[in-house]
Simulated scan of single mutants.
Amino acid sequence: MSLLRHIASRGFLPLHSLRSISTIRVMCDKSAVSSSEKKVDDPMRILQDGRNHRPDNMEKRFLVWAGKYKSLEEVPPTVPQETMEKARNKIRIKIANYMMLATIVGCIGFVYSGKQAAKRGESVQKMNMDWHKQINETSSK
Score class of each variant (00 low, 15 high):
E73N: 10
R25L: 07
E59I: 00
V26Q: 13
S22L: 12
Q134R: 11
S140Y: 01
H6E: 11
S36P: 03
I104M: 14
F62W: 13
S9V: 00
I24D: 13
I93L: 15
R92Q: 11
D42Q: 11
M58K: 12
I104K: 15
N136F: 08
E74K: 03
E85A: 10
R45F: 05
S9P: 06
M84V: 12
H6V: 06
P76N: 13
M127D: 09
A66R: 12
S20I: 13
E122V: 15
R92E: 11
A32R: 11
R10I: 01
L47C: 09
L15P: 13
V124I: 03
S123G: 07
M84E: 09
V111P: 04
A66G: 02
E82A: 14
N89K: 07
Q48V: 10
M127N: 00
K115S: 00
M58A: 13
T23V: 10
N57E: 15
H132C: 08
T78D: 12
S71E: 02
T138K: 08
C107G: 10
I135P: 01
D41G: 15
E73F: 04
S34M: 05
S2I: 05
S31M: 01
E122I: 15
N136H: 12
P80M: 04
L15K: 12
S36N: 03
G109D: 08
L18P: 08
S123K: 01
S123E: 02
K68E: 09
V33W: 00
I104C: 15
Q134G: 01
S140R: 14
S140L: 11
E82Y: 08
M84Q: 13
T78K: 06
T23I: 13
T78Y: 11
R51W: 07
K141Q: 12
E82G: 10
L63H: 11
S34I: 00
H6Q: 09
Y112C: 04
W65H: 11
N89C: 09
G50L: 12
N97F: 07
H16W: 10
A102N: 14
S31R: 07
G11I: 07
I91K: 12
M100H: 03
D49Y: 09
Q81E: 10
V40N: 12
I95H: 04
I46G: 09
R120F: 09
D29Q: 11
L18Y: 04
S139T: 15
W131R: 14
Y98E: 15
D41S: 13
T103K: 15
H16S: 13
K70D: 01
I7N: 02
M127A: 15
